[in-house]
Simulated assay, not measured.
Amino acid sequence: MDTAPPRAARLTFRDATGSDVPELVALIESAYRGDASRAGWTTEADLLEGQRTDPGGVAAVVRSEESRMLLVEEDGALIACCQLEHRGTHAYFGMFAVRPDLQGAGLGKVIIAEAERTVRAEWGADEMHMTVISAREELIAWYERRGYRRTGRMSPFPYGDERFGIPQRDDLQFELLVKELA
């Protein structure tokens, strides 16, 4: 009989510090780019090559007074992260990454619920916003099952700016997803 606490009970959440940046970059890259990302279901490897983020971009989130990088650890090991940014009455959710070999086990649900709880409690946010590449139908459907709604509001992909990757198709754009927080 397994007497270990459920995985969610073994997770710890904390704000990232500058010393976490290299490990965060590696986690984010592994979840979205290259062959390693194919172990999970959130890969963008067929849509984009190159980098997903860089140390400067992650460090800027960690340093900003209006944002935080929430780390998720299990037994002291980094397994997931997400960016939370305070934008007045709403918060922005981004850079969500779960280690590819742990995807599909229910961690994402736990992490996004904690992110939503955090922005309500600490910033009084009444909505969570995020942008998702509109071609990522499976990912958008996952967010819809968590209560996010498609807005139809699109913004262009930054073609030509390799800091965000090298597009493998010419129809990429971001769609704004929104959830009202209770």
Rank of each mutant, 00 (worst) to 15 (best):
R146P: 05
C81T: 12
G165K: 00
C81P: 03
A121T: 08
E137M: 07
E127W: 11
A91G: 15
Y148V: 06
L78P: 04
E114K: 13
H90Q: 15
A115D: 08
G108F: 06
I112S: 10
Y143G: 01
E137R: 09
M130V: 04
F157M: 01
T131E: 05
L84P: 02
E138T: 13
A115L: 05
M95G: 10
W123R: 09
A125N: 04
H86R: 14
R99V: 10
Y143I: 05
G160H: 01
C82A: 13
L139R: 02
R99H: 14
V132P: 03
R150Y: 04
V132M: 04
L84N: 11
T131H: 14
G104S: 13
H129C: 06
H90N: 12
D126M: 08
S155E: 09
D101M: 07
W123Y: 05
S134T: 14
K109T: 10
Y148C: 05
E116G: 01
W142Y: 14
D126H: 11
A121I: 02
M154P: 01
M130K: 05
E137G: 06
W123H: 11
D126T: 08
M130D: 04
S155C: 01
G165M: 00
R149M: 09
E127F: 11
D101V: 15
V98N: 10
R163M: 00
A97T: 10
Y148D: 03
R145A: 01
E137H: 08
Y92D: 13
Y159H: 00
L84E: 11
R117M: 07
E138R: 14
S134Y: 10
